[in-house]
Design a protein around this nucleic acid. Structure first.
Length: 259
DNA sequence: ATGGTTGTAAAACAA
């Protein structure tokens, strides 16, 4: 079973690339972030024509998360429990083929110390509590998405250049580690220890051509899922296509016993 | 370079 995560940066603008990638990479599940549209505008039919069911949680213009899956998408949960009006659409969870998949778009944070930075840290704390209240560490749980944090310096092309910036600041990294410590393992790091593997490159300054990127998109799994992970990798190719998202897909292959 | 690029949506704002 192949599960992928991709911040598509507008599903309406990116639909041709997303469909092309689904056709070529053939993941069983694609978790998307930044769909940037309400559910009514989500192009569900285009996914159905490729054999994918969908579930989306959107809002106008910003944020938004969605699943596309060859398997049934069961027990869909949109947003945190106790969500309030005006909350961003940044989390969608569901049970897919026996795995509890939580698809998140963690806030960017803008600048260290800003209101948006505090909002990011608070949102990450709510995410930590979401796992605590909803799942057990022995459950098969997979959380993936645009975490907007590079966990370590080896996840940054030029760490010195990023000191003092969001995505790498110590408080964000500590908050991310608190989430991970509930019971997650970074699936990508089960298979690749080296630096230089990134999932996002800024649109500016030819960052992609210089591989001046960050690894901020992640797939984390609980122990029972980790034991079934067969491989995990980043597919850089869609970042090189015309009119790309600034992110590229991260994939994990999980044994289900049905293959 | 207080710039640079892209998306939404129609002027800033978010990333």
């Amino acid at each position: 079973m192949k599960i992928a995560t991709w911040n598509v940066n507008s599903i309406v603008a990116r639909l041709p690339l997303v469909l092309r990638w689904l056709d070529e990479a053939k993941p069983d599940v694609l978790c998307m972030q930044e769909i940037k549209c309400v559910e009514d505008k989500f192009p569900a039919m285009a996914f159905e024509e490729l054999g994918y069911k969908t579930a989306a949680f959107g809002q106008p213009s910003y944020n938004g998360v969605a699943f596309a899956s060859r398997f049934d998408i069961q027990n869909v949960k949109r947003g945190f429990t106790g969500a309030e009006p005006g909350d961003h659409s940044r989390l969608i969870a569901a049970e897919i083929n026996g795995i509890n998949i939580v698809n998140v778009y963690i806030p960017n944070g803008s600048e260290v110390g800003s209101d948006k930075y505090i909002f990011k840290l608070n949102w990450m704390n709510r995410l930590r509590l979401f796992f605590k209240e909803r799942y057990s560490q022995t459950d098969p749980v997979l959380v993936c998405g645009d975490f907007n944090v590079a966990p370590e310096d080896r996840d940054v092309h030029d760490p010195a250049k990023w000191v003092g910036n969001v995505l790498v600041s110590p408080r964000e990294r500590a908050s991310l580690e608190q989430i991970r410590a509930w019971g997650f393992i970074d699936a990508f790091r089960l298979f690749t220890e080296s630096s230089g593997a990134f999932s996002w490159w800024d649109y500016r300054q030819g960052a992609f051509q210089k591989n001046d990127g960050l690894r901020i998109d992640h797939i984390w799994v609980t122990k029972s899922v980790a034991e079934r992970c067969q491989s995990s990798w980043i597919d850089k190719e869609p970042r090189s296509w015309e009119r790309p998202s600034d992110h590229t897909p991260v994939i994990v292959e999980i044994a289900t016993g049905k293959e």
